[in-house]
Write a protein that binds this DNA or RNA. Structure first.
Lengths: 213, 213
DNA sequence: TCTTACCTCAGCCAAAAGGTGGAGATGAGG
DNA sequence: CCTCATCTCCACCTTTTGGCTGAGGTAAGA
């Protein structure tokens, strides 16, 4: 490894988690934690002053979410490596994070050793994905026709289907005829290879297209 | 407060979270962290030796989940107070935890102050619920006829509906006629005051009746 | 300009879903 | 024994859903 410590910025809205990370990482001499932030916006503001080399970023945060933050950061500072660190494993999140340029996707259930190893890897410009995240990503790459191929209106429709609305209600909500909604739903089912709107709703939930409340 | 520190046991499968809690709580002189555990079973085994007064318990853990652990602990040690600490807010979890005898339900997004306050409260035998958890619990108490009133077969049916199966598939799965399934689905919708199987599926997911994969 | 993809709508049709009412069997409990 | 809840099934009916084909308008891109 290098002889100068890696400058780290921690971004997470939970105080407890930040403290925990600090605790765990402070046992490792190769790191220097130069700051903390409670959301993506704070992180962005702090970068010029703190000049971190690697950022540990939670994905689910208020104000500015992690994915947006990663995208913005990688645009402004391409050399800065961002490791996504989250407690939930959602297809959509994994894909978005990787697309946004994350140097890693770790779950909070990850042990300290892997965490440390992933940071070193990120600093070297390598990518470390949690095994489960890898699986999701591979699944996605293998079936890119899936959610990817849904058009904008179809995606809108699916979102409403996943909220339990009927075609008539969706039509009213989208301000089109019910016939059009039926057309959209049909092509959704066809494209995704599903056989009912309930399955479509479940798909949308799994993909993180909509939340559960 | 008392002059002797409160003996605390931390139970969480994430090392990072445990360290974070230790860090945060060590700033408070009123506590003494007597031990840690990575799951419910470990916690249970450690109680006789460590003699904690309050346990901070994560709900989602491998081996033995938090709710089961709470139930078991409260049966064996009624005076031991257990505070549930979790990152997710699920109706079913809140209800189950409270029924199991939890002295509190906190989210990991909770700030250190509230966390500390909740532990003191638990030690005094009081109950502290996160505002969001309170809301869920109240909603539940107000509509006990809901999920509660579903019969066994209806619950089975709902579970399969929430997996995206058609009536015919459910009939095959449950080994009854499709007519019977329709009867069950009808009474489910009627009892839960819903208007489509998709809504029923979403309900089942919200209630934690089934998982999402 | 000529595709191509998308959005919108339509009609026709079959299948699935859902509502209503009723009925026989079973088993638990007063 | 009687009652009550549950499970099972049936018939009849309406509504919803989903498949299929086609068609006009629009916007982007070769």
């Amino acid at each position: 490894m290098s002889d100068t410590p890696i400058r780290l910025l921690l971004v997470d809205d939970h105080t407890v988690v930040r403290q925990g990370l600090k605790m765990v990482l402070s046992l490792e001499s190769g790191f220097e934690i130069v700051g903390e932030a409670g959301n993506g916006q704070e992180a962005l503001d702090a970068i010029p002053k703190l000049e971190p080399q690697v950022i540990l970023m939670d994905l689910l945060m208020p104000v500015m979410d992690g994915v947006t933050a990663i995208r913005t950061i990688k645009k402004a500072y391409p050399d800065l490596e961002v490791v996504a660190l989250t407690s939930v494993l959602e297809d959509r999140l994994v894909i978005d994070a990787v697309e946004a340029g994350a140097a890693g996707y770790l779950l909070k259930e990850t042990g300290p050793e892997e965490l440390i190893e992933a940071i070193y890897a990120a600093a070297r410009g390598e990518v470390r994905l949690h095994p489960k995240a890898q699986k999701r990503l591979v699944r996605e790459v293998r079936t890119p026709e899936m959610r990817e191929s849904l058009t904008e209106r179809e995606t809108d429709t699916l979102r409403l289907v996943a909220k339990g609305l009927s075609n008539k209600e969706i039509a009213k909500d989208m301000d089109v005829s019910e016939v059009t909604v039926k057309t959209h739903v049909s092509s959704i089912l066809s494209k995704l290879n599903l056989s009912s709107r309930t399955q479509a709703a479940l798909f949308a939930l799994k993909e993180g297209l909509v939340g559960l409340e």
